[in-house]
Design a protein around this nucleic acid. Structure first.
Lengths: 203, 203, 203, 203
DNA sequence: AATGAATGAGCGTTCATTCAT
DNA sequence: TATGAATGAACGCTCATTCAT
């Protein structure tokens, strides 16, 4: 009888504990010894669960992409007005700022190690994008793809600004402003907001 | 001291030719041998101009920060309407997309190797931010810091989306939309656009 | 003690199935994992039967030395003439060529891991040599030690030539030639072949 | 100006100093650290001259094959009788016994790491064989391929016996006996020995 | 100024071996 | 008995860096 270990479950646990490490040091700068040490296992064990450093990194990105944290935005209680919704989103993002910065470190690092065009066309990133868009769309009740792109890009941009330490930019402030701008802009194009919301609320 | 001039001039030339290399491979993954090879010099020569890999990277970031390409936005011909200005900015960004993506790779990599908070407080990034803000401010004729942050963040965000290969998002489209939103939003707060611009042109 | 019998029996079975493996990859290049895999057992099981890789190898050599295949030459039907005997021996060797090559790989490998002088003085090899000599002696009906050494050495040499892929040399051809040479050489020294053989058959 | 080192010459020097090492420990058991240490250089230097352990080994075999020591047999002063020639050959082989044993270790090891059939068909071994045959042929004045194979195989066989420590077999004894057997055997087939010799001596 | 040979610490990875089950 | 997860020393190899030329 072998030691009773759920191989796949333990692999995933190790993986999730790698998240912070790969956010802290880039793929090229982190060492398997360091990872093993931080995880409290031996390098041998690391290689028992992952065939190579490369594979470990790829599985990490895969795993991270399958997480649903962006979806969590969709769980925001839908507040009465667009403005309130945007404010809530700002708070949510601010709360998870560290997570999103780490995510960005890992994704940028990952893209640098691949041909990114090819990557995007691969399932992973496309799936993450799709899910994020749906979440945004659901929360603010807009389906205009360009507007959603703008919201997503703004979020990305704020993450990036925070990532390199810009303290002048904050999620709450930016989301609030975005709310105001959307409010000022949208009515002209999308008057039937409430209807949209109702149809969403059915789901 | 003509020799020193030559030395420094050659150092800068090598540095500028390192830009693409560090964008392609991250600091941790690139090797001095590879850099030397790509630059067509020996490793010995590399070490003649730069005391270490770390120093080379830092000097590269320093050099890049001193470049004025973001300022170039300010050189955009001031077109009559805000919308036209934003459209022109979109075109400008789209044209230099590759450059901005490379810049982002290098900056993110750099931040990952430092304590980013500490970095921001260092002169370099703060200076770049300040210059970018002034450029935006001048071009758009707006002084509201939060609005400028939003514009900057949106640009950063689109770069990031393009970096990881998202072809759904484009600079031109986003800038155009941003123009519309600003037009819809701003009048309420800032009707005297021309005046503002003039006051900037005085500085 | 039936259990011990089973244990030892299984150990020997594993050992015999290791023969091909150690002939294919040398001691230094083969791994316990690979052996276990090829044997269809776990590494744990391997260590249950053999205390170490070194011991496994030594037991393999020991086992191989105890095999009687060289003796099998003695089982050759004693044919009327020396020439016929040598021809039969050539056929026998050619038939088991692969086995002898593998044996040689293993023995050479083994010698390289020991101080060979010391090894020879160890019982194993001496025993194999002695048995081979007796077998040859019996079959050929000659006692002259130097002649037997020549026959043995020639066989070894042909194995070696075959081992490194020389297709110009063949057992049958060489044994036939050796038969002719012995026939031409021996009568002068040893005319009473039959008598000798009989004297051997008495032992 | 770089350090003045004849790269290829130094490479060959290192190579020749590897001969004993690879004879002592097999390819799979020797380590680059050990080789470097024994050669008195760093591992980095080793890799500066050889792209890999595999390549080092192959170059060693290549180098060894290009050596002319077997040819040296041909340099034996041609003594009056076949018997004297064989006796001289025996002495020559006995004198270089250690070298031939080492050579055998290396060749066997090499064959085990390749598909030997394929190897033989490759130039190296074939060339060595051809040269050896010519040397033998020249020295004893015989062209019969099977007889030459027998002589070569016998030499190989004695090397092998010596390699695994058999002290009962000696080059001088075996060569002397072989001389007698050839003398007894050849006249029937090859009466014009002197003629052959003369034709060789012309070359 | 420029080269590239030299170094040895350290990298990703593998290995024989141990041991809880 | 049999398994395979776990270990960490050691492997082949690479790296930033130094230095004689």
């Amino acid at each position: 009888m072998p030691k009773i270990v759920d191989h796949d479950q333990y692999r995933r646990e190790l993986l999730s504990r790698c998240f912070d490490l790969f956010a802290q040091k880039s793929y090229g700068s982190i060492t398997m010894r360091y990872i093993a040490q931080e995880l409290g296992v031996s390098t041998g064990t690391l290689y028992h669960y992952f065939p190579s450093k490369q594979a470990l990194f790829e599985q990490l990105v895969e795993e991270v992409c399958q997480q649903e944290i962006l979806m969590a935005i969709a769980e925001l209680e839908f507040t009465q007005t667009l403005q309130e919704t945007m404010d809530a989103m700002g708070k949510f993002l601010a709360k998870h700022e560290d997570y999103f910065i780490k995510l960005t470190y890992i994704f940028v690092d990952f893209c640098q190690h691949q041909d990114s065009k090819q990557m995007w066309s691969s399932r992973m990133f496309r799936r993450v994008d799709e899910r994020s868009r749906q979440a945004i769309s659901k929360v603010i009740g807009i389906e205009d793809s360009t507007v959603i792109s703008l919201i997503l890009s703004l979020i990305d941009g704020v993450i990036l600004e925070r990532l390199w330490g810009n303290e002048k930019v904050s999620f709450t402030e930016q989301c609030t402003l975005l709310g105001k701008m959307l409010t000022a802009y949208l009515p002209e194009h999308q008057l039937n907001r409430k209807l949209n919301y109702k149809s969403y609320s059915v789901n």
